[in-house]
Structure formats: structure tokens, C-alpha cells
Computed example of a mutant assay.
Amino acid sequence: MSAPLSSRLLRWFDRHGRKDLPWQQALDDGRRDAYRVWLSEVMLQQTQVATVIGYFQRFIDALPTLRDLAAADEDTVLALWSGLGYYRRARFLHRTAQICVEQHGGELPRDFDALRALPGIGRSTAGAILAQAHGLRFAILDGNVKRVLTRHHGIHGHPGESAVEKQLWLHAETHTPTSRVADYTQAIMDLGATLCMRARPRCEDCPLAGDCTAYRNDLTALLPNRKPGKSIPSRTTLMLILRDAHGRVLLERRGPQGVWSGLWSLPEAANPDIAWRTAQQHAQIDDAQMLTPFTHVFSHYRLNIEPLLFDRATAHRGIADNPQLRWCSSAELAALGLPAPVRTLLQTIV
């Protein structure tokens, strides 16, 4: 094809691209808000646009500016993030906002190296902020872009491998135009999300099909190569739901290490005997009811959860003196950062 890849993508974007996403809202000077771009980029990591929109709007309604995010307490930030998973990203957002207030005048810096130095901002996220908010020529390489470029150039090997990723970055930088950079970055992401999908790509509608190596050689089902598989281990835990006569539930803040670190969750136990002893340490109890078990899948293991309900528990006095424990009403639960499976579980009984 004689026309550059970027020109074909931009023509396609003008007709079919997504231009009404909430983070594309322009400021008075016509630019996009760097804070919104940044927030959307972090939320969109491993999460689809359709899922993110609701979370994004709720987050922006509560914390409309970077300074608002910096001033918020961690529980508020985690509660707004609850359901998106990967809570470390929310903590990085919070800390980065605080650093920007302390060191960058309450704004995300416009310098690439300064952005990369902030917690949770990698090469692609920094490029997206500068390209979409400021129109600067920086490449991006998220999951959708990797898939488009891998197929177009016929690159074999898993995109997460360093040698493959290096090739992809070279192509990403080569194809990024000098003008309409914000539209181009959105266009190539949109192409990957709406046409060049992992399964059943719509190659007949793609503006790049004419010189796409994967399409020409019938490799779209093979590329990108999948990551070599390995078995995912499982573990089982009992989650203790202590509910008092007022309908309040006992929560415990998790430690700084491990999964769901720092979030409010339910006390856990490895077996029924430990579960009873743990429950008795926190409250006076009479009986327990085993609720329906379920499984929550993380990226690296499966967690089999067996909920154990201790109804009409009477709190011991010492609970009030322990900052890592608290009795919460259903209204208070909504304002806390809870792991998604814990929130879903409590919504079925509270």
C-alpha cells in the first residue's frame, strides 16, 4: 500500500473511531485533560473500555482534579477503585498525585523522563499522556497496539518477551505521525479493540488489511503468539462473616504484603477449627452457617472461598481499641475499599 499506515488509520478513525469517550473531553483551549488521560490509561490496563467507563465517571465525579485525588484519603481512593482489581495501581495513582502537588505545581509534568519517574507510569502510559493531552509525538504500546503491530508486521514470539517488545516499540515509533498524534494513538487503540480483536478479527473491514502479513498468510489465529502456558495453583480459605444484631459486619484491614494489601476484608482462616477460634476472639457467637463456596481467579492462582456466617454475633469490647478491626453497616461498606469478591459476597447477605 502506498499510503502510510498512519494516514490509513486516521482516515478510518475519522469515520469509525471513538470520539465521545469521557476522558476525551476537551479543555477550553481544545486540549484534553492530562489527569483524565492518565486515569483512563491506568484503568484500561487489562480492562475493556465498556467496563472502565462507569468506574472512570464515578472516580471523576468524586475526585475531579489531580489535587482532589492527592488530598483524598486512601480508603476513599480504594473504594472508588474497588472492582477494577490490581489495587497497587490505585495506590500508585494516589502517590503520584501527591508527588505532582509537592513537586510539579499540581500538574502532571510535560517532560517524558519526569513522567516516567512517577510511580506506576511506564513508557506507554507516559507516551499516551503526552500524545493525547499535549499532541506531542510519543509512541504508545498497549495490548491492543501490540496485537495490531504483531499481525501487521508478522512478528512471531510472545509480545511480552523483551526481544519481541523491542521490535514492537521500533514499529510503534516509526508509524507514529508528526501531526494528529492524539487522534492516531486513539485510532490504533480503537482498531485493536473493535476490528483486530484476539478472536474473530474483522479483517475485511480493516484499513490495514492490504499489507497485513498475518491476513495475507492466514496467521491471524496464530499471532500474537500466546504466552507459554503453565498450570495455575489453587488455595482455599474460609472467610468469616460476623454479623451483629444491627446488621453490621466485622471487617479486618489486611497487612501491607500479599494480595489485597491494605484493603478492608473479612477475617480468614485455614480450616473450621481455626475459624471458630478466630471468631470467638472477636465476638460472642452461638452458631455458624456455611454459605455457597465460590472461586475467585487471580492472574497467578485461584482462590477457593468458603464463606462462614456467624449471625447475631456480640462484639467484644476490645474491638474498638484495635485500628485494624471495625464493625461496618451496609452504608459504611460503600465508602471503603473492599476486594471485589468480598463486596459481592457481602451484598448477598447485608
Rank of each mutant, 00 (worst) to 15 (best):
L9K: 09
W12V: 05
H16W: 15
G17H: 09
D20A: 01
L21V: 01
P22S: 10
L27H: 15
D29Y: 10
R32L: 04
A34W: 14
V37G: 05
L39Q: 09
L39P: 14
Q45Y: 14
Q46R: 14
I53S: 03
G54Q: 13
F56N: 15
F56M: 13
F56Q: 15
F59N: 12
F59S: 04
A70F: 01
A70L: 00
A70V: 01
A71W: 08
D73W: 13
E74I: 08
W81L: 00
G83L: 03
L84R: 09
Y87H: 12
Y87Q: 12
R89H: 04
R95D: 01
R95P: 07
T96G: 06
I99V: 03
L108H: 10
D111H: 10
L115P: 10
L118W: 02
P119V: 01
G120T: 06
I121M: 03
G122H: 10
G122R: 12
R123I: 05
A126Y: 08
G127R: 07
A128M: 05
I129L: 01
I129V: 07
L130A: 03
L130I: 10
L136S: 02
R137T: 11
R137Y: 11
F138A: 00
L141Q: 10
L141W: 15
G143S: 06
L149C: 00
T150F: 00
R151S: 00
R151M: 00
G154L: 07
G160T: 06
E161L: 11
E161G: 03
E165M: 03
E165A: 00
Q167S: 04
Q167V: 03
L168V: 03
W169V: 04
H175F: 15
P177I: 03
P177Q: 11
P177M: 06
A182S: 09
D183F: 02
T185E: 07
A187T: 12
A187N: 12
T194L: 05
T194M: 05
D205L: 14
D205I: 08
C206E: 14
C206Q: 12
C206W: 14
A214W: 10
A214T: 08
A214G: 06
A214Y: 09
Y215W: 10
R216V: 04
R216T: 14
L219P: 08
P224W: 08
K227A: 04
P233Y: 14
R235V: 02
T236L: 00
D244M: 04
H246T: 08
R253G: 08
R253L: 08
S261K: 15
G262K: 13
G262Q: 10
G262E: 13
L263H: 07
A269I: 02
P272R: 15
P272Y: 09
I274D: 05
R277G: 05
T278G: 03
A288T: 13
A288S: 10
Q289L: 05
Q289K: 13
M290Q: 13
T292W: 15
T292A: 10
T295K: 07
T295F: 02
V297A: 00
F298C: 01
R302P: 12
N304V: 09
L308V: 07
F310R: 13
D311Q: 12
T314S: 10
H316M: 13
H316T: 11
G318S: 07
N322C: 03
Q324I: 06
W327P: 10
W327Y: 07
L336D: 11
L336R: 14
A340W: 14
T344P: 06
L346S: 04
T348I: 06
I349W: 08
